[in-house]
Amino acid sequence: MIEIRNITKTFGRQEVLKGIDLTVEKGEVVVILGPSGSGKTTLLRCLNFLEKPDDGTVNISGEQVNCKRPTKQEIHSLRKKTAMVFQHYNLFKHKTVLENVMEGLIIVRKLDRVEARVKSIEVLEKVGLGDKLDMYPSQLSGGQQQRVGIARALALEPEVILFDEPTSALDPELVGEVLSVIRKIAAEGITMIVVTHEMGFARDVSNHVVFMDGGVIVEEGKPNEIFRSPKEERTKQFLKRITPELTYDI
């Protein structure tokens, strides 16, 4: 279980997160929605300390970290419990597909090379890249690269996978293959927090939807509640803009 309490973050004079509370149960798929600049990326990055929150606590499966003064060990242990899929894939360019996935297993999880290889191939087959093991990232399409990114995260068997707009850098015709991989692993009961603008995906796959605006959580609830009968005016406005075809419901 993941518990975030009163996370705040300021960049310069701009308060980007103004006290975020969020609880994610094991196996849940949480989708975070919100307009650009609302702090979605920053919130995800605070969970694995790619950004250090100014204040608050993060608790992932019993490990409680006080964000004001985290120790190096606490940060490292949070990072080992989480994995991240990035908007721009961020694959290791000098390593092959297989090596990208094996890297964390060998260096962080301390598996031996043979085990790491077997595990990596298994995960890469799951994301449909069993035939691309020895390619370099630059030889792959965006969709394929993102599936490597997902495999790299999945192989680590983290408590939670954080997705930051995993499909928004992709050509439209490649979005589907990546979403279907995410759907597949969601169905396996992997805990995920997903920032996305794919409303169809949010509605079908998530157990919980969070709407953020201006550094606060404006509204959260079951996907049905949020999409069909949002309570807050700001949520209504946002959904109206982003999914015009749904507006007759509101």
Partner: peptide, 30 residues
Amino acid sequence: VDRGQVEAAYSVGMTPVQTFKRIVLPQALA
């Protein structure tokens, strides 16, 4: 070497030293 790869290495759980040796330096030398 782009910052994104460093962040990816951290997100995987690599330490700054491991990240530098295994991800940044080989590409910097290339």
